[in-house]
Design a protein around this nucleic acid. Sequence first.
DNA 1: GAGCACTGC
Length: 673
Amino acid sequence: MADEDELETPLIAELYKPPALLPIAQLKDALLYAIETYPLTVIIGDTGSGKTTQIPQFLFQAGWTSDGSVIAVTQQPRRVAATTVAARVAEEVGCQLGQEVGYSIRFEDVTSAKTRIKFLTDGLLLREMLIDPLLTRYSVVMVDEAHERSLSSDILLGLLKKIMRKRPELRVVISSATLQAENFLDFFAPGPAEQVNGKSKEEYGRIVSIQGRVYPVDIFYLAEPVPDYVERAVETVMDIHTNEPEGDILLFLTGREEIEDAIDKIADRITDLGPDHQNLQPLPLYAGLPADQQMYVFQAAGENTRKVIVSTNIAEASITIDGIVYVIDSGFVKLRAYDPTTGIERLVTVPVSKASATQRGGRAGRTQPGKCYRLYTKDSFTTLEESTPPEIQRSNLAPVILQLMNLGIQNIVCFDFFSSPPSKLVIRAMDMLFSLGAISSEARLTKPLGAQMAELPLEPMLAKALLNSPKFGCLYEMLHIAAMTTLQGNAFVSQDGNIKLLDKAKRKFAVEEGDHITLLNVYEAFVTTGKKDAQWCRSNSLNYKAMVKAVSVRNQLKRHLEKLGIQESALNAPDVRRAGGQSSYSPSERIRRCLVTGFFAHAARMKPDGTFQTANGETTLWAHPTSILFHRKADWVVYHEIMETKNKIFIRDITKIEMDWLTEYAPEYYRVR
DNA sequence: GAGCACTGC
């Protein structure tokens, strides 16, 4: 993902409009009346309608914070959005950021006792519920862009519904860009014959529409389906370029490979154009692109040049680019899917939903009337799903369920989800939590283990391993490792595409045992010989920003453990590290045994052909090319992450273990299966 | 010899 600081400028530029001219200003009184009168207000309004910046200010001026309470705005699940919008609102209110207006995101709390409007990520608001379950410090909670249906915002909606029953004075404002507003109202409001806190459905909530400032977009469909949408997309780019007036093009494809393919093809055709045409500048955009290259899409094209941005779904909602007049929609997107039978995550290419296609088309009409070319027939559009299945219905729910249980939700099956997850997903997650010892056979959170695992901002398997590390005398090392694995394979990065240098750097830190201890070495080197220096990272092909994040994560994990009464300093003394009955093991063995206590379910064995097999022998796995164990010999291993793409299942962050350890630390799991 | 859409605590 792009660096936040660098993204700030284009986002602010996009948001800037004199407040009085925003359509929302005309609705101020109606909005305040609705929020005063009804516990729930659903706002329908497009991006650019000013709802995120203006509504909190209206509430602030109207006295919703005069008793010292705070207005919370969960600005999507995005960190960048929370910071930039907070800065904008602070400017309009005329205060310093962090005074009356502030934001709070992981690692960064820019609020004070004076803060009355607080922008935060929904994940962080969920964490705040651990300390203040009824969110009593807030008079209003605004959930922005709730239609995006992220895992954490869906959970937040379910919890807010419960809180509203207990706090009739709380006001919830939900903003949604699509016409899902009725669904939100139906979910929160009492049923037809019911009352909640003395209010009937009609008295419980209202929907308010805000006219966004958008221009018409002409939609074009194909007459016949095409076999190769990348090829057709390239043809469409060239057609637009040679026949249509000025304006940049945004092309939606599914992933990096397609994007690079399309850009090569466009580059080939540019040479055929001849000198009398305007220039055409193709630019890639996807999350994995280094930040400096991502920035080109925001810069104005050179004179007499048309930009064509070839992007993943990141440009559908996360990133907004000015000046787009033409959108080409391939009609496909890569989505995460989780298979509850195997526990394997997959990235699958699927047709977009109608809501998604509409959102993509809308990207063409932000600054002037635009055109959208859909690379599918009108008939196939009508067969599309209305909206993308919410994340909660296609994710590994173990972390979410652990968190809910820690918030006192005893019976997950009875929890009022905005959309219920399939029972298979719930069962798989409960099985996993049970095998880790986080819940009992009666499906109750265990104390202290389960509760402690829930407190840590880590996936359950990693949390378990970290909490076990004092027993193995490797807390110091496991903190390094836990922090590094949260980087999800982004520790190393080639400098100027120099792969040889990258391999050389990797070899410098690599150890026989695999990736975890290699990552440990990387962290240790970064903070000692590397002195946390950016230049040192460059010369070692390391991602400086990622390493800085690892240091923050490690500090945060250490603080969490201290809150749980686990002191690194006390445990780190050499005599303590030797104690505990584990002293006969080498440091490497203690770490690897400790990893097994969390990751036993992620065990695999290498076959003679170099591929891996799952413990049950049913599935073939491949070491991810970024792994130290890629094309090295091994026997049994545990791995951190598993993901299927294009018919191959990759495992990443892999460490060698002994088979006996599996039965030693997970006898229940590996007994007669 | 070969690669992962997007967030977040």
